[in-house]
Design a protein around this nucleic acid. Sequence first.
DNA 1: GTCTATATTTCGATAGAC
DNA 2: GTCTATCGAAATATAGAC
Lengths: 189, 189
Amino acid sequence: MPTPDRTSLEAIVQAGRDILESAGVAGLTMQAVADRVGVRAPSLYKRVRDRADLLRLITDATVHDLGERLAAVGAGTDPRRDLADLARALRAFAHDRPKGYQLVFTPSSDPGGLSAETLGRAVAPVMRVAAELAGEHHALDAARTITAWANGFISMELAGAFQLGGDIDEAYEFGIVRITEALSGRPRN
Amino acid sequence: MPTPDRTSLEAIVQAGRDILESAGVAGLTMQAVADRVGVRAPSLYKRVRDRADLLRLITDATVHDLGERLAAVGAGTDPRRDLADLARALRAFAHDRPKGYQLVFTPSSDPGGLSAETLGRAVAPVMRVAAELAGEHHALDAARTITAWANGFISMELAGAFQLGGDIDEAYEFGIVRITEALSGRPRN
DNA sequence: GTCTATATTTCGATAGAC
DNA sequence: GTCTATCGAAATATAGAC
């Protein structure tokens, strides 16, 4: 009788995500993952080709979660409000999983082979809002402006780049308001 | 008679910057730097405490160069034009030195101890334009919106995150126009 | 200041028994 | 599928002669 399974691919990926958050990408070693799931390191290679494969799986799972979070924001009646909600949801996600967020948006090496479907699902809500705000013709440019600003803000925040004081939450809300107006072309109150 | 100097701190830092661009931060090993400057690896430790110290020196030199580039843009009569010029200069710098740019704006580990003076000089032009456009009261928030957008755009571009087609240069120009309007509150033509 | 030699450590990955 | 044992490859950093 063969040895019964003592772990699973799911458990390995989840352990990897946990370790990523607690020890960073450098601390995400096969040994650490093995310890956490309760097997010896060589056993991991029965379910994962190599470390790069594991990193890809973790990235994919993270993008999937992000997609669900953004989809959960849903489409309301006001695209301006939707954009604000999406922006806040993105930032909240980044605060929950800073290392995972960085892995997705600032990959040190090309993760290559990310699920296009998963990726598309995550981007869709932003594209929709961008089209509603700026018009179909400018949808892509608008989406890129939104994404660039939000991701740039969050990345710098996570990196501790905002060192001149001031309220970071307020700065983010300021950006939401101004970006929204700039894309919709509506005047401020 | 002691052995004459066969290298210098300057040469070491410059070699490090070159290697960073050609081989990435992971390829920036003491061995690689030593090979390039023409000494044996242990000799580097006479001028650099350790690898982290070298990374800090490289980062500092990169920020210094960026500061000079942005300062060279200068202040014209139209802050809107100045902002556009600064944004383009930042992107051009990133294209020239992508790895160095990422090292500065997306540090994998806290470089700690960056020269505050060097950093301030790089940020100053943006702060000035932000204040002129959005007013002193909103200067910091506006500067953060500008920086977040530009850095986010460039970071995603360098990471190859813009995969839905379209013209990237045009998307950047689109962002410049809209962000400028958003901060100045002036209507589009 | 530069060198040779080497200590240390760490990590990814494989071989082969059970 | 899991294990023990181990290989192999890096890379940082130090010791001590010259």
